[in-house]
């Protein structure tokens, strides 16, 4: 087993009303960042886990996302990074 740090982004599902994202977008526009389109506010998790290799670490975290970390009704997730710790 090798220790890995796996980073996950969890964001509201596309198309769903994202009031936090909208509030941040509006604030950025107020600050003059006129080029900003949509902002999506989600969660970033860093999971330290042991695994045989990077592929196994990612597979394991995908399973965690499906079963607990993301709500499949309202959220999408993406694995942002898998690095040996």
């Amino acid at each position: 087993m090798t220790p890995y740090r796996v980073s996950v982004h969890i964001v509201p599902r596309k198309g769903l009303l994202d009031p936090q994202g909208k509030a941040v977008t509006d604030a950025l526009h107020t600050l003059g960042f006129a080029a900003v389109g949509d902002v999506h506010v989600g969660r970033h998790l860093v999971i330290e886990t042991g695994a045989a290799d990077a592929t196994a670490a990612e597979r394991s975290v995908r399973d965690m996302c499906a079963r607990l970390l993301a709500n499949p009704v309202t959220e999408d997730f993406e694995i942002a990074a898998v690095v040996a710790a």
Binding site: L16, L17, P19, V73
Partner: peptide
Amino acid sequence: ACEAGLLPGALLRNASL
């Protein structure tokens, strides 16, 4: 109950925040 799968759907942050 929604998270446990007893009921469909989910409850998200109020639109007004």
